Amino acid sequence: MSPATAVVLCALAWTVFLGAHLALNGRWWPWLAVSLLPPPLFAAAPLALLLAAAASGSVPGAVLAAGCLLAGWRQSGVNSRAVRRSSPERAGIRVVSWNTQHWNQGREPDRFYAFLHSLPADIYLLQEYLNGFEGGEVWDIDDEERLRREFPGHHLSVDNNSVTLSRFPPAGPPVPVGACSLRVDVRTPDGILSTYNVHIPVQLTVMNPLSRAFFQDMRRRHGARRREYDALVADLLANPHPFLVSGDFNTSAAIGDIRRMPRAAHDAIGANRSLFPASWHARWRLRLWRIDWVFTSAGVRAEQYTFRDPGGLSDHLAQDVTITTTAIEEMNR
């Protein structure tokens, strides 16, 4: 077999795989395991095939590889907007969103709150307001007294194991969304802004991948994730206010569930200056990829967007985003 033929066969194999991935990802529950592939693979594999096609002189291989690169680019997690010239910093509303990984369980509370104070935000969206074991039992906690003491200038909302702290007064009672997320509407100088504090359940439990229990658990988790996404999307579509959605989606760019977000929700990653932004794993020297997201609607613009190292307090980096809002009429999407 000639090198050119080998390149064509490899490119064809990747084309078939990518087609199946785009068709089944987020739709068929067994593909959830496949979708955990590293997002950079969807750029690295076709780029490698392009180089091999160039070296072997395989035009069909190059065409297939180029097509795969374009078709799978959004799966790669590469932030191509990072190469744009950065805009001047503008004052706005600072929002910090962070999966605390079981709050301050097993850690010093003073360090936990010191980290939050090191990021002085107008709005905090904090997930996993609970204690427990990874993949096992969890239980509710009550840290409201200390929260009120630490943040006397913020309004506190707690529900669905989520904490929202806002310097702006609430425009109504907090609204649980699904079983894991929390909506809080706040009155900003430009009007009401809906904040969504999101936590989508993780895809898999670490166990023997050849066991029946593994597949039963994956199917159950696929259903739970779909219900959470459906509840979030339904609330967003019915919401007349401009919004900011942020939290731990447990979803990389290669996982099709993120396509469920409505068109009115715009990924804020363009305000980030990293070519390959990563929010997990915060305790590892090599950060893997982004599973924490920020979305904004019309009337809300992300000006700066950065990931902050929590210093070992969680496996998630904190999302630090500054937004500006425009006084606009109530929107019916």
Rank of each mutant, 00 (worst) to 15 (best):
R167Q: 10
I123F: 04
P201Y: 11
Y305S: 04
W31Y: 11
V198K: 02
D110C: 01
A66W: 05
P120T: 10
H117Y: 01
M261V: 09
T164M: 09
Q203F: 13
T5I: 14
N25W: 03
V163Y: 07
A6M: 12
A82E: 01
D235V: 10
F151M: 03
F151E: 00
R308D: 04
S87Q: 13
I123T: 03
A271T: 01
Q127F: 10
H281I: 12
P201V: 07
H316N: 03
R227D: 13
I93G: 00
L232S: 02
P201E: 07
T322L: 11
F42Q: 03
E137L: 12
W28E: 06
N208C: 12
L275P: 00
P209M: 14
A234K: 07
E329N: 07
G72K: 02
Q127E: 10
P277E: 15
W14I: 15
R263S: 15
D122T: 07
G26M: 01
S2F: 02
D230C: 05
F295H: 08
D142C: 11
R287W: 12
E228Y: 00
D159H: 11
R90H: 08
L244K: 04
A265Y: 05
W98F: 10
L50F: 01
N208W: 10
I328A: 09
Q203S: 15
R167D: 12
W103V: 09
L317W: 13
V96E: 06
I192Q: 12
L210K: 15
D257M: 08
P38F: 15
R148Y: 00
N25S: 12
A278E: 06
C10P: 05
W284V: 11
D140V: 14
A253G: 00
R290C: 08
S157C: 09
P242Y: 13
I192D: 03
W14Y: 14
I258A: 05
R226H: 08
P38H: 15
H155I: 06
E128C: 05
L237M: 12
V158T: 06
N25D: 09
F115S: 04
R290N: 04
T5D: 10
P46E: 08
R27L: 08
A33L: 14
T205W: 13
V175N: 09
H241Q: 13
G19A: 05
L126H: 06
Q319E: 12
L210W: 12
W31L: 01
R111M: 11
A33D: 06
L36A: 02
A231K: 00
F112V: 03
G72C: 08
P277S: 08
W98Y: 12
R263Q: 12
V206P: 00
A33T: 10
L288T: 01
P262Q: 15
M261N: 07
N160H: 02
A268E: 06
D235P: 00
G57S: 04
R259Y: 06
P176A: 14
R148M: 07
F243T: 08
A62G: 04
L204S: 05
D320G: 02
V206H: 09
A55R: 02
R85H: 10
R301L: 08
R263T: 15
D122W: 04
V158N: 01
R149M: 15
A282V: 06
L37V: 03
R260Q: 13
L47H: 07
P60C: 11
A44H: 03
R285V: 13
L50K: 00
L147V: 05
L24S: 01
H102R: 15
D230R: 03
Q216S: 13
R225W: 09
V8W: 03
F276P: 00
D267V: 02
L236E: 12
V177N: 01
H281R: 13
R107L: 11
